[in-house]
Simulated scan of single mutants.
Amino acid sequence: MLIQAIATSFRQHFQAEPLLVRAPGRINLIGEHTDYNGGYVLPAAIDKEMYFAVALNQGPTIRLVAHDLHEEFAIEAAAVQRTDTGWANYLLGVVAQFQKRGVAVPGFDCVFGGTIPMGAGLSSSAAVECGLAFALNELLGTGFGRLELALIGQAAEHEYALVKCGLMDQFASLHGRAGHAVRLDCRSLEYEYFPFDTTACRLVLCNSGVKHALASSEYNTRRQECEQGVAVLRQHHPQIQTLRDATLDQLAAHRAELGPVVHRRCVFVVEENHRVEEACRRLAAGDLRGVGHLLYASHAGLRDNYQVSCPELDALVQAATTTAGVFGARMMGGGFGGCTINLVAMDHVEGFVKQMTSAYQKQFGRALETYQGTMVDGVSIIR
């Protein structure tokens, strides 16, 4: 097992006994591009994980080993700053956040690695941040709660990885619960768990293998378009703080003023928020087919109104609609590549993977990577 290899590597490197921690990646069942609009998301932690072996070393130096990359990095704890070593920044950003909160972080040693496929949109970066934050919280006895640790991870990503992410990824990694999705209110940070019947259904991710360069610039453009929409609506409805507060009727009434593009963006966000709430009701009732229909509707909105899909993702969702045992499918994540998430009946998973792989190869001449996931508990110590 990878965790045993990481523990062994730690003992060989540092001749000490480490604390062992696991930090899961996440999927988002539904609720895309709603987080920065003050809305709802419905993520879950899944059994693709980062593993950590960490111990204080009684010296002034932080020593990091990236097990999967066979790379090492060292820096004085008192001199932590952004570096040219990309992977180290995710960890150093966490240390900097502890220091910002008045915690004196001494030298420590860390070996980490994992099973989260890179670039698949399963938030390996958030798992790295949350795993180290959890380990340091334990070793230093700082007593931060899970929400504070999520905020530490998010700030690390903002300031050291320079990615302006929402809170969902770090939140899901820390707050996961086996067999449940968790609805997060991105405005109040209140959350609630909803059961996901793992005996009836499997989560299968299909990785398009595509990551268009458009993704980050278009993401920023979508944020601006949503802000434009709110600015227009507030002139008539001062109570509207974010698109979370807007209604479809209000959008229709001010359609001309919004303009066709901004109107479409806003419609998607308002409808997607409604879909998250409806999905929670369906999960509570054990209605996976109903949840699946909402996933298809979400994808159609992401494709047509938010315009963040791409031909490969559209083809994967289209193929899923004609495959036996599929409850629903949609693109997952920021867009322009990455994975589709598919809800597949347990006894159809093998046939689904076979058919999707064949269809993708035929249409795009590329192999399709698939991952199966189970909803698991959030970050924890491995005893």
Rank of each mutant, 00 (worst) to 15 (best):
residue 61 T to P: 01
residue 170 Q to R: 04
residue 272 E to I: 02
residue 113 G to F: 01
residue 20 L to F: 14
residue 205 L to Y: 11
residue 303 R to Y: 11
residue 318 Q to G: 08
residue 50 M to V: 09
residue 218 E to A: 09
residue 4 Q to P: 08
residue 244 R to G: 03
residue 126 A to F: 01
residue 298 S to L: 09
residue 347 D to N: 06
residue 297 A to V: 07
residue 85 T to D: 01
residue 281 R to M: 14
residue 363 Q to L: 09
residue 90 Y to G: 00
residue 69 L to G: 08
residue 176 G to H: 03
residue 68 D to R: 03
residue 278 E to V: 11
residue 80 V to W: 07
residue 27 I to C: 10
residue 354 K to R: 11
residue 258 L to A: 11
residue 163 V to D: 11
residue 302 L to H: 08
residue 76 E to K: 05
residue 135 A to I: 04
residue 30 I to R: 08
residue 223 R to C: 05
residue 380 S to G: 12
residue 345 A to K: 10
residue 222 R to H: 09
residue 121 G to I: 05
residue 169 D to V: 00
residue 94 V to F: 00
residue 305 N to M: 13
residue 261 V to P: 10
residue 321 T to W: 04
residue 46 I to G: 04
residue 264 R to V: 12
residue 100 K to W: 11
residue 15 Q to K: 15
residue 284 A to Y: 09
residue 23 A to L: 05
residue 315 A to M: 12
residue 329 A to R: 00
residue 295 L to P: 12
residue 37 N to F: 04
residue 117 P to C: 10
residue 186 C to T: 13
residue 109 D to V: 02
residue 379 V to P: 02
residue 259 G to I: 07
residue 162 L to N: 10
residue 146 R to Q: 12
residue 141 G to L: 07
residue 24 P to M: 05
residue 284 A to P: 05
residue 161 A to S: 03
residue 261 V to T: 12
residue 170 Q to F: 02
residue 151 L to H: 12
residue 299 H to W: 14
residue 28 N to Q: 04
residue 90 Y to T: 00
residue 9 S to G: 05
residue 124 S to Y: 00
residue 119 G to W: 06
residue 215 A to W: 07
residue 204 V to G: 07
residue 145 G to E: 14
residue 366 R to N: 14
residue 282 R to E: 11
residue 97 Q to D: 05
residue 200 A to I: 09
residue 267 V to E: 15
residue 101 R to K: 15
residue 187 R to N: 05
residue 158 H to A: 06
residue 245 D to M: 00
residue 183 R to C: 14
residue 80 V to D: 11
residue 367 A to P: 00
